[in-house]
């Protein structure tokens, strides 16, 4: 579980995060949603430790990241997996070598155990047939799946996903969302997903945090979002005609 308490962050006297408190539970897909420029990426990067916050606490199962030294943060990061927007696979390595990389760098496994673990992760994301291909030789969806395999190689306790569906077609997005949800539940990971994909919100939003102009305006689940009275959230989530109709239908048949 990750808990943030009274988090504030400014850049050049502009306050980007304003006193945010939230709990991200393990075994659940925790979504941070908000418009572009709302501060959701800064919030995620602050939680990971890429930004030093001005005030507040970031507790990883009780361990406060803001009070850690660089060496301790480095150690903590071995428990963290991250799925980047552009996958961030290493171009010069095959899918298999990409998944092997964190194992070879940090695990104390034997070579055989590493290969078994890498193959397990690749099988888990259904990429066995592409394991010897380079990132440039596979599709965007396959790259995302390979990145998921790499991020779970070291059995992380915490998984961060930065806009995992960016650049993917709706069908592939659903596959990726489902995969993240399954992995989260299967390995009891605390997963935090930064997204503005409404399909993800409706599909895997176990715990949703809505950020507006640097403030947390709403927190709840995908089932509660239809009954939410927050105007900013409604403007954001139900922006398209399709979602407006869905909300109308829901309100007419609660």
């Amino acid at each position: 579980m990750i808990e943030v308490r009274n988090l504030s962050k400014s850049f050049d006297n502009k306050q980007v995060l304003k006193d945010i408190s939230a709990v991200f539970e393990n075994g659940k897909t925790n979504l941070i949603i908000g418009r572009s420029g709302s501060g959701k990426t800064v919030l995620m990067k602050s939680i990971i430790g890429l930004h030093r916050v001005d005030a507040g606490e970031i507790l990883y199962d009780g361990r406060d990241l803001t009070k850690m030294r660089f060496r301790d943060i480095k150690e903590l990061r071995k428990e963290v997996g991250m799925l980047f927007q552009g996958s961030a696979l290493f171009d010069s390595l095959t899918v298999f070598e990409n998944v092997m990389f964190p194992l070879e760098m940090f695990s104390s496994m034997t070579k055989k155990e590493m290969v078994e673990r890498a193959e397990f992760c690749i099988n888990r994301v259904n990429l066995t047939e592409a394991k010897d291909k380079y990132p440039s030789e596979i599709s965007g969806g396959m790259q995302k799946r390979a990145a998921i395999a790499r991020s779970i190689a070291l059995n992380p306790k915490y998984l961060f996903c930065d806009e995992p569906n960016s650049g993917l077609d709706p069908q592939t997005s659903l596959v990726i969302d489902q995969l993240i949800k399954e992995i989260t539940q299967e390995f009891d990971i605390t997963t935090i997903i930064n997204t503005h994909d409404m399909n993800s919100v409706m599909g895997i939003g176990d715990n949703i945090i809505f950020i507006h102009e640097g403030q947390k305006e709403w927190q709840g689940s995908k089932d509660e979002i239809f009954d939410c009275q927050n105007q900013n959230l409604n403007d954001f989530v139900f922006a398209s005609d399709l979602y407006k109709k869905i909300k109308k239908a829901h309100n007419n048949n609660p």
């Binding site: 990971i48 890429l50 903590l76 071995k78 980047f84 927007q85 961030a88 171009d91 940090f106 961060f160």
Partner: peptide, 16 residues
């Protein structure tokens, strides 16, 4: 190129 495609960030997040 590794920097702008977040490959260096990926290394940092891993603790490398």
């Amino acid at each position: 190129t590794m920097r702008i495609t977040e490959q260096i960030d990926a290394l940092e997040i891993m603790g490398v």
